[in-house]
Amino acid sequence: MILFILKRVLYTLPITFAVSIVCFLLVHLAPGDPVSAFLPPQASAEVIAAVTHELGLDRPLPIQFLHWLSRVVVGDFGVSIANGRDVFDEVIGAFSNSLILASVAIPLAVAFGFALGAISGYCRGTLVDRISTVVAIGGVSVPHYWLAIVLVIIFAVENNILPAMGAGPGDSRAWSWDWEHLRFAVLPAVSMAVVPMSIIARTVKAVVAEVLSQEFVRALRAKGIGSFRVFIHVVKNAAPTSIAVVGVQVGYLLGGSILIETVFSWPGAGYLLNIAIFQRDLPILQGTILVLAMFFVFTNLLVDVLQAAIDPRVRRY
């Protein structure tokens, strides 16, 4: 078991390295001179050259990469081209906002997803099952950014129940877990949760239905073992796959938060990414992509380890 964890962690290293290369290359493959993008248009060629040299952008790519990597590893992500602030602080700050949103969205997705899936799985073929299947397919096909807009229309525009944008009342940049702030998170979280919820529901339903159809269960029931025990059995068998799917969805959730955050102007990592793209703020761009990707890699690692802890079959690596 420990060996498996160690191997799995070790496997993360080359992936991390590859991810960092991709992050680095991504922004450097962009057409157009990054320097002239943020300098005033009248800047002379000498000024451009000087700034380029100062930022180290005229050195060969591999050298730039190593230079960048050596700084990133110690947490120095550089300085934002747009507003001069420390990239690391900006990104971490934005990321923590995204996490706040995720921490509301994930429980929603997991709870409703499991409930929907389990009910479907238990009551196969009934009306309840058919309804939840329809809901699930709808949920999987819905563009979450559109759903966000529709929710805003319903709850903010037509009926002024919930706010349409922002992450807190007034200009407050600090978050607190009270309803004053949480009400801002409701609509974004719901929009983010629908797709993962549907995917989780679909997977859970399939697993539950499969477990219930096993002869094992019929034998248990024939022996007179109560439904509760059967339920425990179902949970134990459905757990590994379910955890896997939740893990994957968590990863995607954070990666795809950019669209929802844009709709609601929620100051998360996705929102930051959006701004950085349009301002061609390379350091922020690199920093955000790196952090988001690393989080995804980390989530995958966690899911694999968790799965191995629960399902001994996985450990035979």
Binding site: I15, A18, V19, V22, L26, V27, L29, A30, P31, G32, G251, Y252, L254, G255, G256, I258, L259, L273, I277, L285, I289, L292, A293, F296, V297, N300
Partner: peptide, 21 residues
């Protein structure tokens, strides 16, 4: 190919589009 699996698809799409223009 595994390297690309380390990125959530939305992020990858946005990053590439953003980078290329």
């Amino acid at each position: 190919i595994d390297v690309f699996f380390a990125f959530p698809s939305v992020l990858l799409a946005i990053a590439i589009s953003g980078a290329l223009g």
